[in-house]
Write a protein that binds this DNA or RNA. Structure first.
Lengths: 137, 137
DNA sequence: TGTTTACCCTATAGTTTTAGTAGATTAATT
DNA sequence: AATTAATCTACTAAAACTATAGGGTAAACA
Protein backbone atom coordinates (compact mmCIF):
# COMPACT_ATOMS: atom_id res chain seq x y z
CA UNK A 1 0.00 0.00 0.00
CA UNK A 2 1.05 3.51 -0.80
CA UNK A 3 1.34 5.63 2.33
CA UNK A 4 -0.73 8.77 2.54
CA UNK A 5 2.47 10.68 2.88
CA UNK A 6 3.48 9.63 -0.62
CA UNK A 7 0.01 10.10 -2.01
CA UNK A 8 -0.28 13.60 -0.60
CA UNK A 9 3.24 14.41 -1.65
CA UNK A 10 2.59 13.50 -5.27
CA UNK A 11 -0.62 15.47 -5.27
CA UNK A 12 1.12 18.51 -3.88
CA UNK A 13 3.95 18.26 -6.39
CA UNK A 14 1.61 17.93 -9.35
CA UNK A 15 -0.47 20.81 -8.05
CA UNK A 16 2.63 22.97 -7.98
CA UNK A 17 3.67 21.69 -11.38
CA UNK A 18 0.31 22.57 -12.89
CA UNK A 19 0.64 26.19 -11.81
CA UNK A 20 0.93 28.56 -14.76
CA UNK A 21 3.35 30.85 -12.98
CA UNK A 22 6.32 29.61 -11.00
CA UNK A 23 5.46 31.64 -7.89
CA UNK A 24 5.23 30.54 -4.27
CA UNK A 25 2.00 28.76 -3.33
CA UNK A 26 0.87 28.70 0.29
CA UNK A 27 0.55 25.43 2.19
CA UNK A 28 -3.04 26.30 3.03
CA UNK A 29 -3.97 26.67 -0.61
CA UNK A 30 -2.50 23.30 -1.54
CA UNK A 31 -4.13 21.65 1.46
CA UNK A 32 -7.53 23.09 0.63
CA UNK A 33 -7.35 22.33 -3.05
CA UNK A 34 -6.14 18.74 -2.64
CA UNK A 35 -8.02 17.85 0.54
CA UNK A 36 -4.92 17.21 2.60
CA UNK A 37 -4.68 17.76 6.39
CA UNK A 38 -2.65 20.94 6.57
CA UNK A 39 -0.29 19.96 9.36
CA UNK A 40 0.53 16.69 7.67
CA UNK A 41 1.14 18.43 4.38
CA UNK A 42 3.44 20.83 6.15
CA UNK A 43 5.83 18.08 7.15
CA UNK A 44 5.69 16.50 3.71
CA UNK A 45 6.56 19.73 1.94
CA UNK A 46 9.40 20.17 4.34
CA UNK A 47 10.99 16.88 3.38
CA UNK A 48 10.47 17.72 -0.28
CA UNK A 49 12.32 20.94 0.33
CA UNK A 50 15.14 19.29 2.24
CA UNK A 51 15.60 16.80 -0.59
CA UNK A 52 15.91 19.42 -3.27
CA UNK A 53 12.54 19.28 -4.98
CA UNK A 54 11.04 22.45 -3.64
CA UNK A 55 12.11 25.94 -2.70
CA UNK A 56 10.33 28.01 -0.11
CA UNK A 57 9.81 31.61 0.81
CA UNK A 58 8.70 32.91 4.18
CA UNK A 59 6.47 35.80 5.06
CA UNK A 60 3.78 37.52 3.05
CA UNK A 61 3.58 36.19 -0.48
CA UNK A 62 5.57 33.21 0.65
CA UNK A 63 5.02 29.52 0.04
CA UNK A 64 6.50 26.59 -1.85
CA UNK A 65 7.54 26.32 -5.47
CA UNK A 66 9.18 23.77 -7.75
CA UNK A 67 12.90 24.15 -8.24
CA UNK A 68 13.10 22.23 -11.50
CA UNK A 69 11.05 21.83 -14.62
CA UNK A 70 8.29 19.19 -14.11
CA UNK A 71 9.61 17.32 -17.13
CA UNK A 72 12.94 16.93 -15.38
CA UNK A 73 11.51 15.17 -12.34
CA UNK A 74 11.04 11.41 -12.84
CA UNK A 75 8.74 9.66 -10.42
CA UNK A 76 11.52 7.31 -9.37
CA UNK A 77 13.13 10.11 -7.40
CA UNK A 78 9.86 11.28 -5.93
CA UNK A 79 8.85 7.82 -4.79
CA UNK A 80 12.24 7.05 -3.27
CA UNK A 81 12.17 10.19 -1.18
CA UNK A 82 8.58 9.91 0.00
CA UNK A 83 7.94 6.17 0.16
CA UNK A 84 11.45 4.74 0.40
CA UNK A 85 12.70 1.78 -1.63
CA UNK A 86 10.80 0.90 -4.78
CA UNK A 87 11.65 -2.78 -4.40
CA UNK A 88 9.24 -4.93 -2.41
CA UNK A 89 12.14 -6.74 -0.74
CA UNK A 90 15.49 -5.25 0.34
CA UNK A 91 17.43 -8.00 -1.41
CA UNK A 92 16.33 -6.73 -4.83
CA UNK A 93 16.69 -3.04 -4.08
CA UNK A 94 19.07 -1.00 -6.20
CA UNK A 95 19.45 1.92 -3.81
CA UNK A 96 18.70 0.27 -0.49
CA UNK A 97 20.12 -3.23 -0.88
CA UNK A 98 20.20 -5.48 2.15
CA UNK A 99 20.75 -9.19 2.48
CA UNK A 100 17.95 -11.32 3.87
CA UNK A 101 18.44 -13.03 7.23
CA UNK A 102 16.87 -16.20 5.99
CA UNK A 103 17.95 -17.15 2.48
CA UNK A 104 21.53 -18.47 2.24
CA UNK A 105 21.58 -18.04 -1.55
CA UNK A 106 19.64 -15.29 -3.27
CA UNK A 107 19.96 -16.93 -6.64
CA UNK A 108 17.99 -19.89 -5.40
CA UNK A 109 15.33 -17.85 -3.63
CA UNK A 110 11.97 -17.96 -5.36
CA UNK A 111 10.82 -14.75 -3.71
CA UNK A 112 13.95 -13.03 -4.95
CA UNK A 113 13.34 -14.28 -8.46
CA UNK A 114 9.77 -13.03 -8.51
CA UNK A 115 10.45 -9.69 -6.89
CA UNK A 116 13.27 -8.91 -9.29
CA UNK A 117 10.74 -8.98 -12.09
CA UNK A 118 8.31 -6.84 -10.12
CA UNK A 119 11.00 -4.29 -9.37
CA UNK A 120 12.01 -4.01 -12.99
CA UNK A 121 8.51 -3.55 -14.28
CA UNK A 122 7.60 -0.98 -11.64
CA UNK A 123 10.84 0.85 -12.17
CA UNK A 124 10.09 1.18 -15.84
CA UNK A 125 6.75 2.80 -15.11
CA UNK A 126 8.26 5.30 -12.72
CA UNK A 127 11.08 6.08 -15.12
CA UNK A 128 8.67 6.74 -17.94
CA UNK A 129 6.64 9.20 -15.89
CA UNK A 130 7.77 12.66 -14.92
CA UNK A 131 5.65 15.16 -13.05
CA UNK A 132 4.86 16.71 -16.41
CA UNK A 133 3.47 13.45 -17.73
CA UNK A 134 1.03 13.15 -14.87
CA UNK A 135 -0.51 16.56 -15.34
CA UNK A 136 -1.73 16.36 -18.95
CA UNK A 137 -5.21 15.00 -19.63
CA UNK B 1 7.30 -3.63 1.36
CA UNK B 2 6.35 -7.25 1.18
CA UNK B 3 5.25 -8.61 4.54
CA UNK B 4 7.12 -11.54 5.99
CA UNK B 5 3.87 -13.43 5.96
CA UNK B 6 3.78 -13.25 2.18
CA UNK B 7 7.48 -13.93 1.81
CA UNK B 8 7.31 -17.00 4.03
CA UNK B 9 4.12 -18.13 2.36
CA UNK B 10 5.66 -18.05 -1.10
CA UNK B 11 8.72 -19.88 0.14
CA UNK B 12 6.61 -22.56 1.73
CA UNK B 13 4.50 -22.98 -1.38
CA UNK B 14 7.49 -23.28 -3.66
CA UNK B 15 9.10 -25.72 -1.29
CA UNK B 16 6.03 -27.90 -1.46
CA UNK B 17 5.87 -27.48 -5.22
CA UNK B 18 9.47 -28.60 -5.62
CA UNK B 19 8.77 -31.87 -3.84
CA UNK B 20 9.11 -34.85 -6.12
CA UNK B 21 6.29 -36.73 -4.47
CA UNK B 22 2.97 -35.15 -3.62
CA UNK B 23 3.00 -36.41 -0.06
CA UNK B 24 2.37 -34.50 3.18
CA UNK B 25 5.34 -32.46 4.40
CA UNK B 26 5.61 -31.52 8.06
CA UNK B 27 5.56 -27.91 9.16
CA UNK B 28 8.80 -28.45 11.03
CA UNK B 29 10.57 -29.61 7.90
CA UNK B 30 9.46 -26.59 5.89
CA UNK B 31 10.36 -24.25 8.72
CA UNK B 32 13.81 -25.73 9.11
CA UNK B 33 14.54 -25.81 5.43
CA UNK B 34 13.37 -22.28 4.71
CA UNK B 35 14.43 -20.62 7.96
CA UNK B 36 10.94 -19.63 9.00
CA UNK B 37 9.78 -19.32 12.63
CA UNK B 38 7.68 -22.43 13.01
CA UNK B 39 4.70 -20.97 14.82
CA UNK B 40 4.46 -18.14 12.35
CA UNK B 41 4.61 -20.57 9.48
CA UNK B 42 1.91 -22.64 11.10
CA UNK B 43 -0.60 -19.80 10.88
CA UNK B 44 0.40 -19.00 7.32
CA UNK B 45 -0.08 -22.58 6.18
CA UNK B 46 -3.44 -22.55 7.86
CA UNK B 47 -4.67 -19.61 5.81
CA UNK B 48 -3.29 -21.25 2.68
CA UNK B 49 -5.29 -24.30 3.55
CA UNK B 50 -8.45 -22.35 4.29
CA UNK B 51 -8.16 -20.58 0.95
CA UNK B 52 -7.89 -23.76 -1.05
CA UNK B 53 -4.20 -23.90 -1.91
CA UNK B 54 -3.16 -26.64 0.47
CA UNK B 55 -4.53 -29.82 1.92
CA UNK B 56 -3.49 -31.18 5.27
CA UNK B 57 -3.36 -34.42 7.09
CA UNK B 58 -3.29 -34.76 10.84
CA UNK B 59 -1.54 -37.28 13.02
CA UNK B 60 1.51 -39.34 12.36
CA UNK B 61 2.82 -38.98 8.83
CA UNK B 62 0.71 -35.88 8.45
CA UNK B 63 1.57 -32.48 7.08
CA UNK B 64 0.70 -30.13 4.25
CA UNK B 65 0.59 -30.73 0.51
CA UNK B 66 -0.38 -28.83 -2.63
CA UNK B 67 -3.88 -29.41 -3.92
CA UNK B 68 -3.24 -28.32 -7.49
CA UNK B 69 -0.48 -28.60 -10.02
CA UNK B 70 2.13 -25.84 -9.49
CA UNK B 71 1.64 -24.73 -13.08
CA UNK B 72 -2.01 -24.05 -12.33
CA UNK B 73 -1.29 -21.59 -9.52
CA UNK B 74 -0.63 -18.06 -10.77
CA UNK B 75 1.08 -15.72 -8.33
CA UNK B 76 -1.81 -13.27 -8.58
CA UNK B 77 -3.94 -15.57 -6.48
CA UNK B 78 -1.15 -16.27 -4.01
CA UNK B 79 -0.34 -12.61 -3.48
CA UNK B 80 -3.97 -11.61 -3.09
CA UNK B 81 -4.52 -14.18 -0.36
CA UNK B 82 -1.32 -13.51 1.56
CA UNK B 83 -0.64 -9.83 0.99
CA UNK B 84 -4.04 -8.49 0.02
CA UNK B 85 -4.68 -6.09 -2.85
CA UNK B 86 -2.05 -5.92 -5.56
CA UNK B 87 -2.84 -2.29 -6.28
CA UNK B 88 -0.94 0.32 -4.31
CA UNK B 89 -4.10 2.40 -3.88
CA UNK B 90 -7.65 1.11 -3.34
CA UNK B 91 -9.03 3.34 -6.11
CA UNK B 92 -7.15 1.32 -8.76
CA UNK B 93 -7.80 -2.10 -7.28
CA UNK B 94 -9.66 -4.64 -9.37
CA UNK B 95 -10.69 -6.92 -6.54
CA UNK B 96 -10.72 -4.53 -3.61
CA UNK B 97 -11.91 -1.27 -5.15
CA UNK B 98 -12.66 1.63 -2.86
CA UNK B 99 -13.17 5.31 -3.52
CA UNK B 100 -10.72 7.77 -2.01
CA UNK B 101 -11.95 10.20 0.64
CA UNK B 102 -10.04 13.04 -0.88
CA UNK B 103 -10.21 13.12 -4.67
CA UNK B 104 -13.59 14.24 -6.08
CA UNK B 105 -12.71 12.95 -9.57
CA UNK B 106 -10.51 9.92 -10.07
CA UNK B 107 -9.95 10.72 -13.70
CA UNK B 108 -8.25 13.94 -12.76
CA UNK B 109 -6.15 12.44 -9.98
CA UNK B 110 -2.47 12.23 -10.81
CA UNK B 111 -1.84 9.52 -8.24
CA UNK B 112 -4.63 7.48 -9.77
CA UNK B 113 -3.15 7.90 -13.21
CA UNK B 114 0.28 6.76 -12.09
CA UNK B 115 -0.87 3.87 -9.95
CA UNK B 116 -3.04 2.48 -12.72
CA UNK B 117 0.09 1.95 -14.76
CA UNK B 118 1.90 0.41 -11.81
CA UNK B 119 -0.97 -1.97 -11.15
CA UNK B 120 -1.09 -3.10 -14.75
CA UNK B 121 2.61 -3.77 -14.99
CA UNK B 122 2.79 -5.62 -11.67
CA UNK B 123 -0.28 -7.62 -12.55
CA UNK B 124 1.33 -8.77 -15.74
CA UNK B 125 4.34 -10.08 -13.85
CA UNK B 126 2.21 -11.99 -11.39
CA UNK B 127 0.05 -13.40 -14.17
CA UNK B 128 3.08 -14.62 -16.07
CA UNK B 129 4.45 -16.48 -13.08
CA UNK B 130 3.01 -19.63 -11.63
CA UNK B 131 4.53 -21.57 -8.78
CA UNK B 132 6.08 -23.84 -11.38
CA UNK B 133 7.84 -20.93 -13.06
CA UNK B 134 9.52 -19.90 -9.84
CA UNK B 135 11.03 -23.29 -9.10
CA UNK B 136 13.09 -23.89 -12.22
CA UNK B 137 16.64 -22.58 -12.11
C1' DT C 1 6.34 47.00 14.40
C1' DG C 2 2.67 44.04 13.26
C1' DT C 3 1.15 40.54 10.20
C1' DT C 4 1.83 36.68 7.51
C1' DT C 5 3.90 32.93 6.40
C1' DA C 6 7.14 28.93 6.65
C1' DC C 7 9.86 26.22 10.11
C1' DC C 8 10.75 23.04 13.92
C1' DC C 9 9.87 19.95 17.83
C1' DT C 10 7.10 17.00 20.45
C1' DA C 11 3.49 13.92 21.50
C1' DT C 12 0.08 10.37 20.58
C1' DA C 13 -3.76 7.44 19.12
C1' DG C 14 -4.34 3.85 16.08
C1' DT C 15 -3.12 0.11 13.23
C1' DT C 16 -0.29 -3.57 11.40
C1' DT C 17 3.25 -6.80 11.75
C1' DT C 18 5.44 -10.44 13.76
C1' DA C 19 5.56 -13.29 16.33
C1' DG C 20 5.06 -16.40 21.19
C1' DT C 21 2.23 -19.43 24.59
C1' DA C 22 -0.89 -22.93 25.91
C1' DG C 23 -3.59 -26.30 24.99
C1' DA C 24 -7.17 -29.08 22.14
C1' DT C 25 -7.90 -32.29 18.45
C1' DT C 26 -6.99 -35.86 15.22
C1' DA C 27 -4.96 -39.95 13.29
C1' DA C 28 -1.55 -43.53 12.73
C1' DT C 29 1.12 -46.90 15.12
C1' DT C 30 2.20 -50.20 18.66
C1' DA D 1 -6.36 -49.10 24.31
C1' DA D 2 -2.26 -46.36 24.85
C1' DT D 3 1.13 -43.69 22.83
C1' DT D 4 2.90 -40.53 19.87
C1' DA D 5 3.16 -37.32 16.21
C1' DA D 6 0.97 -34.10 14.03
C1' DT D 7 -2.30 -30.26 12.96
C1' DC D 8 -5.57 -26.86 14.78
C1' DT D 9 -7.39 -22.95 17.65
C1' DA D 10 -7.30 -19.03 20.49
C1' DC D 11 -5.25 -15.64 23.02
C1' DT D 12 -1.58 -12.35 23.93
C1' DA D 13 1.91 -8.87 23.19
C1' DA D 14 5.95 -6.33 21.88
C1' DA D 15 7.48 -3.54 18.35
C1' DA D 16 7.20 -0.77 14.50
C1' DC D 17 4.92 2.22 11.58
C1' DT D 18 1.22 5.67 10.17
C1' DA D 19 -1.24 9.66 10.31
C1' DT D 20 -2.08 13.17 12.51
C1' DA D 21 -2.40 17.43 16.23
C1' DG D 22 -0.32 21.29 19.07
C1' DG D 23 2.49 24.91 20.08
C1' DG D 24 6.10 27.81 19.67
C1' DT D 25 10.07 30.11 16.59
C1' DA D 26 11.96 32.68 12.82
C1' DA D 27 11.98 35.24 8.79
C1' DA D 28 10.02 38.33 5.25
C1' DC D 29 7.27 42.16 4.14
C1' DA D 30 4.35 46.30 4.61
Amino acid sequence: MLSKKTKYGIKALTYLASQSKREPVQISEIARHENIPQKFLESILLTLRNTGFLGSKKGKGGGYYLLKDPGEIPMTTVIRVLEGPIAMVPCVSLNFYEKCDDCPDENKCTVHKLMLQVRDSVLEVYRNNTLADLILA
